[in-house]
Amino acid sequence: MPIIRKSLAAACCALLLAASAACDASEPADAESRVRGAVERLGEWEAVSVTARVDASADEVYAFLRRAQDGGTAPTRADAASLSRMEVSFTVGSDEPLKDTGDGDRLDSGLMVNFGGLDLAGYRSLGTDVYVRADWRRLDAEFGGGHATVSQAAGLARSADGLPPSLAPARDLFQGRWVQIDPEEFDHFARALGGKYGRRAQRLANSADLLQSPAAQHHVIDSVRRALDGHASFRDAGSRDGAEHVAVSLPAREVAGDLADALGPLEERFDGIGFAWLERAPDREVTVDLALRGGTLSKMTVDLGRFLGAEGGKGDGQDDRGPGVLPLTLSFAPGQAVPLRVPEGVRWLDPQDVMAAALYERLGASGS
């Protein structure tokens, strides 16, 4: 759905806002100075983790999605339930403190998506090696069978026990175990196959390029820093729950336009990803709440509705009130929430193994 893609992009903007606070500026205000120091404290570690989740019930998410819908497929209650249960953990690490890494340094990274406490999909990018896993059957159940690719993989998972030993890596993939892949091999195979599978494999290769390329990693961070530098204002927001809070305000439309210009060149490299929608952000301020514990950034909360028109109407009718409130919370911590190490017992997966497993399953089904 369009709303989910926009929400994820808004989350990235809010996340990198914290990084922008570490940029140099003349005579920063006290609140701004504390935020800069809190972000720099995270950079003293060799690994930092961020966990993202929507802080709302399934009913609240569903109401928000319905009001924010701007065409396309209508949201379902299953969509809302999945989004309310979803938690994404991301870890980035290096052999030295993150603040000491340069433009030529590759950063290891890992991501895991869980629903209701169950880890169902993830990746690890370690040096030049990429590892992936997904629990296809549980993902299919979580999505209510509404995602064609996941449902197809779940069908293959149900018959994976019957695959021959030569296709053990494909069996591991469909049974939810870690496998190692070479994204470039999937890229070459995609070009030969073409069609729908080819486009999906091409996107896999392009995404892995971003994960592994030091230039691409630092380009994204530096672009967002430049776009946000000078736009944000900081003010004290008191103390609660054992943390001091700082409110960071920024003009949504102005910052979004700068971000679209800064990130535009990436559209050519990543098929299906666009940033033009940022230029349609509402003309109002967006406030991000930052929580600092022990002088270190620990949490960030932003209302996604402010990026999508909430409170932007005239107030004289229900349809003028915008999509409402949907808080996105990002929690920061030193260390590895997603282990940045080679998974045990991992096998190498060739793209041909996946196609062979699919063909084997079809032949078995037709012969039964």
Rank of each mutant, 00 (worst) to 15 (best):
P282C: 13
A56W: 06
P351H: 00
R293W: 03
G367I: 08
E285F: 09
A68N: 08
P75D: 09
V150E: 00
A333Y: 07
M86T: 03
D229Y: 06
A215H: 12
D108W: 05
L118K: 14
P165L: 07
S109A: 08
S368V: 10
G272K: 00
D316R: 09
P183E: 01
P339E: 03
L120H: 07
L297R: 14
D55P: 07
H147M: 13
Q352V: 11
S57I: 12
A74P: 00
L126N: 07
T91N: 10
A81E: 15
G257E: 11
G194V: 06
Q175N: 15
E44F: 01
A134R: 05
G198T: 07
S368W: 07
L304A: 04
D172I: 01
T149M: 10
G71M: 01
A356L: 10
L163K: 00
E46S: 12
S57E: 15
V179M: 02
A216H: 11
A260H: 11
E268M: 12
R321K: 12
A160L: 06
A227P: 03
A192L: 15
S109E: 00
G155I: 00
R199L: 14
A227K: 10
C13G: 10
D70S: 12
A160F: 01
P323M: 10
D353I: 03
A333G: 11
G102C: 06
E184D: 11
G315H: 04
I181A: 04
F64H: 08
R269A: 15
E268S: 15
L259E: 08
T91L: 04
M300P: 04
Q69R: 11
A237L: 10
Q175F: 02
T128Y: 03
H188A: 15
P343H: 08
D187Y: 09
P351G: 00
L292S: 05
G264Q: 14
E60H: 06
A170L: 08
A153T: 02
E361D: 14
F189S: 11
V48W: 12
E344L: 03
G144P: 09
L278T: 13
D316A: 08
D105V: 13
L263F: 08
A262T: 03
Y197H: 04
G127L: 06
A21Q: 12
D271G: 06
G93T: 02
L120I: 08
V220W: 01
K314V: 13
G294P: 12
A291P: 10
R34A: 04
D187G: 09
D140V: 05
V179G: 01
A29N: 10
P282E: 12
H219D: 07
T128D: 15
